[in-house]
């Protein structure tokens, strides 16, 4: 029922492209403040690379790489990174997401601390967006029954 290697052209190209798309997604995340980009766009590209793999192979291969449980954990981790950074600022005596307070625990000045704080928040956004995209795609593509869809 699940036919593997049904189309070697798409499969080879997906295998060739996926690492580069993922590296590009992380590039968009980390250099977002020099060029358009950031957490959301990087997360979309990261999720899209996974969707490309699922399209080229099948849903079983996708679930072998990221299981549903791990996906839920990733969702929660992203939100926790985001809100944890904000809460850390709150605990350190500033307002919510007031990154300059992070300088108290980091060995840098307030300006660099602000940049690092934004980076941490963007990492959280990226993880959440990628995980949510993947789970929405899996739910839609399989209509609730993962073995049936996109074979």
């Amino acid at each position: 029922m699940i036919r593997r290697h049904e189309d070697i052209i798409i499969e080879s190209l997906a295998r060739f492209l996926t690492p580069f798309i993922q590296a590009f997604a992380l590039y968009v995340l980390f250099l977002g403040h020099y060029s358009p980009g950031g957490g959301f766009q990087g997360g979309v590209l990261m999720g899209a690379s996974f969707i490309l793999l699922v399209i080229a192979y099948d849903i079983i291969e996708g679930k072998r790489r990221i299981t549903e449980k791990f996906n839920i954990v990733l969702n929660a981790t992203g939100v926790m990174v985001f809100s944890g950074t904000g809460l850390l600022c709150l605990i350190l005596g500033g307002e919510f997401l007031d990154y300059s307070q992070l300088a108290a625990i980091l060995p840098v000045g307030p300006e660099e601390a602000r940049g690092l704080g934004i980076l941490a928040v963007e990492i959280g956004v990226e993880i959440t967006v990628a995980a949510i995209m993947v789970s929405i795609f899996l739910d839609l593509a399989s209509a609730g029954e993962h073995e049936e869809a996109l074979k």
Partner: peptide, 25 residues
């Protein structure tokens, strides 16, 4: 950008990506 900070970010993300999809390329 070839300074230490961006190079280390590159090392981290490339390690991550090659861990995730080293069997693909």
């Amino acid at each position: 950008k070839f300074d230490i900070f961006h190079a280390s970010l590159g090392v981290i993300s490339c390690l991550f990506v090659s861990y995730m999809s080293h069997d693909l390329l």
